[in-house]
Simulated assay, not measured.
Amino acid sequence: MSANGEKGTVAHGAADVPPAGRNEFGWNFFDASGQRQMAIQGPGHRKFGNPGPLGLLSFASTTLILSFVNVQARHVTEANIVVGMALGVGGLAQLLAGMWEFAAGNTFGATAFSSYGGFWLSFATIFIPGSGVLDAFAKTPDDFNNALGFFLMAWFIFTFIMLLASLRSNLGLVFLFFFLDLTFMFLMIGAFLPTNVNITKAGGGLGIVTAAIAYYVGASELIPREAGYFTLPVYQLPRRD
């Protein structure tokens, strides 16, 4: 109501000017002069969700599919089936989870999810027709195996660093990075020794174990104590004072 009692008008400076401030959704509808606005207020009116389960479960699902191929489950030997999963789930979903971990202030989670998201995107690129990667090694398959070994070696080293960084987090993450590092090691050796298929199969078996652990840790974060009927313990490790 305005000072003259008419609806729909605003008397600037009058006592009935709607006060500035946020409603229950965090929006500010009026400024101090009574002008309507729709400006989202800064962070603080709503907490960030936990991006951890998205990153862990996306990693687990993509790793499981590739590991089935590596152990030649049901005689499947071509890794191209994982390309779509690696792009959309292991790659994009994990990358997004990593960016939100940065926003939440978790450097460890941000580094892990963003990096392994990049791993899946780069791995998928190898098998995408037209990327030129496989075409470049069409006449020298031995060179491709060695190059793939170099690729996996870099991720073996990176994962070992992540394993060291996880030692004061929880046992779930420690086991996850330990078995993931073993997976990369066996796959790396299998790439350098392509005639010994059992080494790659061993890497695939370790990958299945890694995926199972990632599913467990992801589920433990998705079902917190206050939201579920049960919890999945990951056994927090003591931190340095």
Score class of each variant (00 low, 15 high):
Gly49Ala: 14
Asn50Val: 11
Pro53Cys: 06
Leu56Asn: 03
Leu57Thr: 01
Phe59Ser: 07
Ser61Gly: 15
Ser61Ala: 14
Thr62Cys: 03
Leu64Pro: 03
Leu64Arg: 06
Ile65Tyr: 08
Leu66Met: 14
Val69Asp: 10
Val71Asp: 06
Gln72Asn: 09
Ala73Trp: 04
Arg74Gln: 14
Arg74Leu: 11
His75Lys: 06
Val76Gly: 00
Val76Tyr: 01
Thr77Cys: 10
Val83Asp: 01
Val83Met: 11
Val83Phe: 07
Ala86Arg: 05
Ala86Cys: 14
Gly91Thr: 05
Gly91Gln: 07
Leu92Val: 15
Leu96Ser: 05
Met99Cys: 13
Trp100Lys: 08
Glu101Trp: 13
Ala104Cys: 12
Thr107Ala: 12
Gly109Met: 03
Ala110Arg: 03
Ala110Lys: 01
Ser114Asp: 01
Tyr116Ser: 12
Gly117Val: 00
Phe119Glu: 04
Trp120Gly: 11
Trp120Cys: 10
Phe123Cys: 03
Thr125Ala: 13
Phe127Ser: 06
Phe127Tyr: 15
Ser131Pro: 11
Val133Gln: 00
Leu134Lys: 10
Asp135Gly: 05
Phe137Gly: 05
Ala138Thr: 15
Lys139Tyr: 15
Thr140Gly: 04
Asp142His: 08
Asp143Cys: 04
Phe144Trp: 04
Asn146Val: 14
Leu148Asp: 01
Phe150Trp: 03
Phe151Ala: 06
Phe151Leu: 09
Phe151Thr: 00
Leu152Ile: 09
Met153Cys: 08
Trp155Met: 07
Trp155Arg: 08
Phe156Lys: 02
Phe156Thr: 04
Phe156Asn: 00
Ile157Arg: 00
Phe158Asn: 07
Phe160Ala: 04
Ile161Trp: 04
Ile161Val: 09
Met162Arg: 11
Met162Asp: 12
Met162Tyr: 09
Met162Ile: 15
Leu163Met: 01
Ala165Gln: 09
Arg168Ser: 09
